[in-house]
């Protein structure tokens, strides 16, 4: 590899890291009141109106920007199926690390049985300072070199402190192993989402799409 090309590559990665840092500042916060450029909207697969209405959430993850668009979630539960078949080799709604079923029927006055179709998959935010990890008495939740939080099953005693501590109760005690289990950002849920309601946009794509809006 020539030096010039190597330099370019490093520049590119630096830019991506800067983009990620920028988005981290608003991870999970409402975007209402902001305008989003056309190139970013097309990347997120949403419209400005959906951003304004609060239907879209963005979450910063180590591998990309996680976009959840509840206007597009049709409740098929394939995210939960793919999560568990890939990670557990069995199929379950309860153990899934992405959670739609609990929102599908009835969620705070919304859902299938509340006469509207407002539901969405809850996802792990891979918090920089994870409440789950902080709460674990056995320090069984650790971050890998990319910042993805994992459960060390050897240390986990299945006490459920992480489940309680997480504001969104995303970790789950697996009913059979009696160990905590949580999202490790494998991406199976988003890859299998049949309406693109759940997607992970890689940082290089976000970085590239963010460029044209820069003033310089």
């Amino acid at each position: 590899m020539s030096e010039v090309k190597k330099e370019n590559k490093i520049d590119k990665l630096l830019n991506q890291e800067m983009t990620r840092r920028k988005f981290m500042k608003i991870s999970g916060k409402s975007l209402a009141g902001l305008t989003v450029s056309a190139s970013l909207l097309s990347l997120f697969g949403c419209t400005q109106e959906q951003v304004d209405s609060g239907a879209v959430s963005l979450w910063t993850t180590p591998t990309g920007l996680l976009v959840v668009n509840q206007a597009k979630c049709t409740g098929c539960q394939r995210c939960e199926i793919n999560c568990t078949v890939v990670n557990d080799g069995m199929v379950s709604s309860h153990t899934s690390r992405v959670k739609i079923t609990r929102n599908l029927m009835s969620n705070n006055g919304h859902g299938t049985y509340q006469d509207d179709w407002v539901y969405y998959p809850d996802t792990c935010r891979q918090c920089d300072v994870p409440a789950c990890g902080e709460a674990c008495p056995k320090e069984a939740i650790y971050a890998d070199d990319k910042g993805v939080k994992h459960v060390d099953e050897a240390k986990c005693v299945g006490c459920g402190a992480c489940v309680e501590a997480c504001p969104w109760h995303m970790p789950t005690i697996h009913p059979e192993t009696r160990k905590s289990t949580k999202c490790i950002l494998c991406g199976a849920c988003a890859e299998g989402c049949v309406t693109g309601a759940l997607s992970i946009v890689p940082w290089d794509a976000v970085t590239a799409a963010a460029q044209p809006t820069r003033k310089n």
Binding site: K22, K25, G33, L34, T35, V36, L40, T213
Partner: peptide, 16 residues
């Protein structure tokens, strides 16, 4: 008053 997302991000303090 509606600000562009990327401008808004620039304006926020850098975390790290």
């Amino acid at each position: 008053e509606k600000m562009d997302l990327m401008d808004y991000l620039d304006q926020l303090d850098e975390e790290e």
